[in-house]
Design a binder for these strands. Structure first.
Lengths: 227, 227
DNA sequence: GATATTATTTCGCCAACACTAATTTTGGTG
DNA sequence: CACCAAAATTAGTGTTGGCGAAATAATATC
């Protein structure tokens, strides 16, 4: 029954797939089977099989050999998971002493177990934040999300002063390193110098000067400092 | 491989079975297959099958047609789940506005998803409590548990003054009713009267007099008031 | 345009866990 | 002691969701 109205509870697997497809197709392109498999650490045949089931349930649109995209219903459910994940991260950091490099793993498991009630209570306890500890936007309870567009640090003009608004880095080591340099959402940095050919980037924070690699700097999304 | 050392993560099902067997065999007798099935809302054959798997893994000792008991390893794991459950209940009540009648269901799902780290942080945030909101003892992190023995209210001598220390009631309605009468752990009550043949019991709390049925009163476990 | 590479899917297969129906064991009871 | 009911198990099935091997489609290359 494609697109059945009564949404029986999703399995953990289905929730993971929807979230993966959401993230992978966030840049316009449909999500490739291999990419999903890689992200979820599964084999491509497993993903192929699940894709078929998800398509039958009306959660994704799948064109064979072309990739998968979320349907409206699928995106609604994916965003619900993203909201849960990011609120959990915020809550764990705020109230239970987690660091932004360790919190992902915990949230990854909890997001499948929390009730709507619990999530909303956590949101309330946090004062309904708009972003999680990495600066990623938290979807609203009604399923809307406001994705702001920031510029990666390497795209900033030399000499400008910008505020880090969002930090993209999946590996905990990167996050720990960035934290050790004080590079997190809210930090104001001045771009001192940029070497060509994806070379290192020199920046100045309030207290220190740092040189960081292009790769790492690409994960630092910035906006002009507000007056 | 019975009793393998490296404890690969348990499935949700296994965790539920271990907890069920722990509770059912807490009164000395091995847990019957039917009782487990009833408690977990499963069919007896399903339980029979799982029992075989658990016995193979060395988590329970099973004598066919005789019942199941936890091995030391199984008990250790069951107590870990009980600790998680009760700490979660305590945390949700203390910090997230849950009532003791709604908290069980939420904890029931979360207990399978929380890490050791998270549980210990919650315990610390609570000040390492010894009991949960129902007065049930919380096993220590090292796997020990102190089960105090209290007397059900109907066993108390008329005229005595006792403190409710623990409340056994699974249905939320019962718990809500008891809460509405102020009958919860810590409440001091005077036993006014006891009707024979499991009849109603009259009690006085600090502010009110109440008459409650024998059945309900059996769930109120009491101890003499401390000097 | 033929072919090599890569992405994707199909084809069995397996393990965990649930179920119903049928069978066996156990523990009484007349 | 024979028989019956309750408890437990076995037999057979289904679903979910993994896997590797092999086939196939899309894409890139010469």
């Amino acid at each position: 029954m494609p697109g059945s109205l009564a949404h029986e509870p999703l399995t953990r697997s289905v929730e993971d797939y929807l979230k993966a497809i959401y993230h992978l197709s966030s840049k316009g392109e449909p999500a490739g089977t291999n990419d999903i498999a890689h992200l979820l650490a599964l084999s491509p045949p497993s993903v192929s099989g699940m894709i078929k089931r998800l398509a039958e349930q009306g959660l994704i649109a799948h064109a064979p050999y072309r990739g998968s995209e979320l349907t409206d219903q699928g995106r609604r459910l994916a965003l619900r998971m993203v909201r849960r994940h990011r609120l959990l991260e915020a809550y764990l950091v705020e109230f239970l002493g987690y660091d932004w490099d360790t919190v992902h793993e915990e949230a990854e498991r909890l997001e499948h177990a929390v009730s709507e009630t619990l999530i909303e209570r956590m949101a309330a306890a946090l004062g309904n934040p708009r972003t999680d500890p990495h600066g990623d936007p938290i979807p609203m309870a009604d399923g809307t999300i406001h994705e702001f567009v920031f510029n990666p640090l390497p795209d900033i003009a030399t000499g400008s002063v910008v505020e880090i608004r969002r930090v993209n880095a999946s590996e905990p080591e990167r996050l720990r390193y960035l934290a050790s340099l004080g590079l997190k959402p809210g930090t104001v940095v001045t771009l001192l110098d940029r070497q060509p050919f994806n070379g290192p980037i020199s920046i100045r924070t309030g207290t220190h000067d740092h040189v960081i690699g292009h790769d790492l700097a690409m994960g630092l999304l910035c906006a002009p400092v507000e007056g």
